[in-house]
């Protein structure tokens, strides 16, 4: 058996279903999902089929909603129109964005980007430090496990008391919730660097930074991204949650609660549509980055 294949299989290993000792493993199988689709995505006939199914589903919903006339389930055409009215009917020089889009959507996205960015960078940096030393890992592991086990929304009331409402509290909530998966996964990834490669780095006399750049980070990358994906969805959840709390003044979440209090279901649906699209785009973007960074040199031909 060629040892050369050993590493190229590493990303697949990350999909193995069961947990064992690693903290990371609890997220592993979830990462299978995107890669499972990728093979089928390539087929143009499948794309066509999907489009068709999507259109059919929308049409069915439209017909059913029209026939029923329920306030709770408005037809998609009206939802889309409401979304257009609310956010995308602005002047050309604002890229068609309305002032509501500037006041609600962009602040939300900005806070999410800031929180997720802090969590990603901080988590990777701290994860490398923790993962490089067995001692540091043993010291930090139980605390990290606990931190990860706390359902993140539970911390938001505490942060509200300490930081009051507003952007700092929201960014902190997002960052503090999203940091753990990245941190733990990075630490696991760095810790599991092939010992032979560590020897190789020593023999080549790579400096600490070179070692980080050419060995530790690349070999931990699949796990780092598994963590990042989880962190991204937590960031989105916390972005919305921190805006749903009474006391916030702007954001997509605020739009939601505001519409809820006015029983404006059309706007609620429109906001959900917007969030679904945003979530999808962000996930796709992260996956694209991942494929670009890991796909190279890691997949068995």
């Amino acid at each position: 058996m060629s040892e050369g294949q050993k590493d190229s299989r590493a990303p697949d290993d990350a999909r193995t279903p069961t947990p064992a000792r690693s903290a990371l493993s609890s997220h592993r199988p979830d990462r299978s999902a995107p890669s499972a689709t990728s093979a089928r995505d390539a087929h143009p006939s499948h794309l066509l089929l999907r489009l068709l199914v999507l259109l059919l589903a929308l049409a069915a919903w439209q017909l059913a909603a029209d026939a029923h006339g329920s306030v709770y389930f408005p037809p998609p055409s009206r939802i889309a129109h409401r979304a257009y009215e609310l956010w995308f009917s602005g002047p050309v020089r604002h890229l068609f964005l309305t002032s509501a889009a500037f006041e609600d959507v962009l602040p939300s996205l900005g806070r999410m980007a800031a929180g997720f960015g802090i969590a990603a960078l901080g988590g990777i940096a701290a994860g490398v430090v923790v993962g490089r030393s067995r001692w540091a890992y043993a010291v930090c592991n139980p605390v990290l496990q606990f931190a990860r086990a706390v359902p993140p929304p539970a911390l938001v009331p505490v942060l509200v008391v300490v930081l009051d409402f507003g952007t700092p509290m929201q960014i902190t909530s997002i960052a503090f919730s999203a940091v753990w998966p990245v941190l733990i996964n990075t630490a696991e990834g760095v810790r599991n660097t092939d010992p032979l490669r560590i020897d190789v780095a020593a023999v080549l006399r790579l400096g600490p930074l070179e070692r980080l750049r050419f060995l530790l980070l690349p070999s931990a990358l699949p796990r780092i991204f598994a963590g990042l994906r989880l962190s991204l969805s937590l960031s989105l959840i916390l972005m919305v949650f921190s805006e749903l709390l009474p006391g916030t003044a702007d954001g997509i979440g605020f739009t939601l609660t505001d519409a809820q209090s006015r029983s404006d279901l059309l706007t609620v649906w429109a906001a959900l549509l917007l969030l679904g699209v945003l979530g999808h785009l962000l996930n796709t973007a992260l996956l694209a980055v991942e494929r670009r960074l890991i796909g190279r040199g890691r997949t068995t031909p």
Binding site: L236, I237, L244, L256, L265, V268, L272, G276, G279, N283
Partner: peptide, 12 residues
């Protein structure tokens, strides 16, 4: 449906 942050459904 999946990437839709589930807490956003709370109001609805």
């Amino acid at each position: 449906l999946r990437p839709l942050p589930s807490v956003a459904l709370i109001p609805l």
